[in-house]
Simulated scan of single mutants.
Amino acid sequence: MEDVLDLYHEPYDETRPVICFDESSKALRGHERDPLPAEPGAVARVDHRYTRNGKQRLHISTEPLTGWVNVEITEKRRTSEWIDRMVELADVHYPDANRIRVVMDQLNTHKPAAFYQFFPPDQAQTYLDRFEFHYTPKRGGWLNMAEIEIGVLKRQCLDRRTHQNQNEGGNGLQLD
């Protein structure tokens, strides 16, 4: 716990950003019957029954000191998706950073050694040299600010029915 708190206490350094990372699942639930819109003298009416349309996984990265938040949506939550998010941080979002310090939980898919499963040894080591991983203690996920972002998303928009949005070839969620 002290390790994560000490990290949060450090001043901002763009060459050594602190990124919080977490994942969450969202069940996709559609309407069995179309809702009836609000009319003068009547509120909108939504049937409590729904159809199950699978799940999507949200991968949240946030840099608390700048307010930057990135959400990626995937079908599954595996080590390969975690590796993709870390590579995206290194190559797309922070290509000029010397060291990317990532705060995350101790989920079984968050294994730095897995870089060697997906890349040749020299490339895996190059990525690992750019990362510094800080793990929240078990039952201490509240220390991860990405979890706070997930809570905000759930309260502001993910607490209603959603379904998969395939418009424009996208892999996203459509809120009702």
Results as ranks from 00 to 15, higher is better:
His93Asp: 11
Pro64Asn: 14
Asn70Ile: 03
Arg57His: 14
Thr51Arg: 08
Asp47Tyr: 00
Leu65Asn: 15
His48Asn: 07
Asn53Gly: 12
Arg52Trp: 02
Gln56Glu: 08
Val43Lys: 15
Leu28Gln: 09
Val71Ser: 06
Arg85His: 05
Arg29Asn: 01
Gly54Cys: 11
Trp68Ile: 06
Leu89Gln: 10
Glu23Val: 11
Glu72Trp: 06
Pro37Phe: 05
Phe21Met: 06
Asp22Leu: 07
Trp82Ser: 01
Pro35Met: 11
Asp34Met: 15
Pro37Glu: 04
Thr51Gln: 06
Lys26Asp: 04
Ser80Phe: 00
Glu39Ile: 11
Ala90Trp: 02
His59Asn: 13
Glu23His: 12
Gln56Cys: 14
Gly30Met: 05
Gly67Trp: 08
Trp82Ala: 00
Glu23Gly: 03
Val87Asp: 01
Thr62Glu: 07
His93Ile: 14
Leu28Phe: 00
Thr66Trp: 15
Val71Lys: 07
Val69Met: 13
Ser24Cys: 13
Ile73Gln: 08
Arg52Ile: 01
Leu28Cys: 14
Ile83Arg: 03
His48Ile: 03
Glu72Ser: 15
Val43Ala: 08
Asn70Ser: 13
Arg78Cys: 10
Ile60Glu: 07
Trp82Tyr: 02
Leu89Glu: 01
Arg77Ser: 12
Glu23Ile: 07
Arg77Met: 06
Asn70Phe: 01
Glu75His: 09
Arg85Gln: 09
Pro37Ser: 06
Arg29Pro: 00
Asp91Ala: 13
Ala90Asp: 09
Thr74Glu: 12
Asp84Leu: 10
His48Leu: 12
Thr62Ser: 15
Ile60Phe: 03
Glu23Met: 14
Ser25Thr: 10
Glu39Trp: 05
Asp34Leu: 12
Pro40Trp: 02
Val87Thr: 13
Lys26Ser: 07
Thr74Ile: 00
Val69Trp: 04
Ala90Glu: 03
Gly41Ile: 02
Thr62Leu: 13
Leu89Ala: 02
Thr79Gln: 12
Met86Ile: 07
Arg57Asn: 14
Cys20Met: 03
Asp84Cys: 04
Gln56Asn: 08
Trp68Met: 10
His93Met: 13
Ser61Glu: 04
Asn53Arg: 13
Gly54Arg: 13
Met86Phe: 05
Arg33Pro: 00
Arg45Asp: 04
Ala90Cys: 10
Thr74Gly: 09
Arg57Ser: 15
Arg45Thr: 02
Phe21Lys: 02
Pro35Ala: 07
Leu36Gln: 11
Arg33Lys: 12
Gly41Cys: 04
Ala27Ser: 08
Ser61Phe: 04
Thr62Trp: 06
Ser25Trp: 05
Gly30Thr: 00
Ala27Ile: 05
Lys76Met: 09
Asp84Pro: 03
Arg49Asn: 05
Pro64Met: 10
Gly54Leu: 13
Val87Arg: 04
Phe21Ile: 02
Arg52Lys: 10
Glu88Ser: 12
Lys26Trp: 02
His59Gln: 15
Arg77Ala: 07
Asp47Cys: 08
Arg57Val: 15
